[in-house]
Amino acid sequence: MTTISPAPTATDVETRGFAVSSLVLGIVSLVAGFTFVVPVAGLVLGILALRREPSARTMAIWGIVLNGVMLAGVVIATLAFLAFGLLLLPFAPLAFV
């Protein structure tokens, strides 16, 4: 005689949506180049995943690391471009001669 097991309930199924989204956004931000919105969204999703999805901790941590590195890169590159532009500002009138 075979017994049919009951369907899993919503509490039995573990969700990993935030962690997967954070990891995917981290990989996309590495591949797609420097943006500001994508790493911030991935960082927020990774932090939420750490709190809500303990079974997906590794993916959440990797998402946080990738998004944090890319966000730091964006900030450093922006500051470097601004500093370089300010250094060249006294020579701007020479460009129109």
Rank of each mutant, 00 (worst) to 15 (best):
F81R: 05
A60F: 06
A77Q: 03
V28E: 07
T35M: 12
A41M: 12
G63T: 05
L66M: 14
W62P: 05
W62T: 13
T58N: 14
L25Y: 05
L23Y: 03
F81S: 11
L25S: 02
V20N: 04
R52F: 03
V65T: 13
A19P: 00
T9F: 01
F81D: 13
P8H: 14
I61E: 10
L79M: 08
F36V: 11
F18G: 00
P54K: 06
I64W: 01
L71E: 06
I27D: 07
A60C: 08
L43Y: 05
F91C: 00
A49F: 02
L23R: 01
V69H: 04
T9Q: 09
P93D: 10
I4W: 00
A92F: 09
G63F: 08
G63N: 06
V31G: 09
S21A: 14
I76G: 05
V38K: 00
V24L: 13
S5A: 14
L43R: 01
L43T: 10
T35H: 14
A83T: 11
G85M: 04
V28L: 15
F34N: 03
T58H: 12
A49M: 03
S29G: 03
V24I: 14
V65L: 11
V97E: 09
L71C: 07
G26P: 04
L66D: 14
A83Y: 09
G33K: 03
L71F: 12
R16K: 02
F34E: 08
G33Y: 05
M70G: 07
T15L: 13
F91M: 08
T2D: 14
G42N: 06
P39R: 08
F84G: 06
L66V: 10
A10W: 10
V20M: 03
L23N: 02
E53M: 01
I4G: 01
S21Q: 04
S5Y: 14
P6L: 15
R57V: 06
I61H: 08
V13W: 07
V40W: 05
A60S: 03
A92L: 13
R57S: 12
G73L: 10
A56P: 01
L43Q: 04
L86R: 08
T15W: 08
L86E: 12
A56S: 14
D12F: 04
L94Q: 13
V37D: 08
A10R: 14
A7L: 12
V37P: 00
R16H: 06
S29L: 04
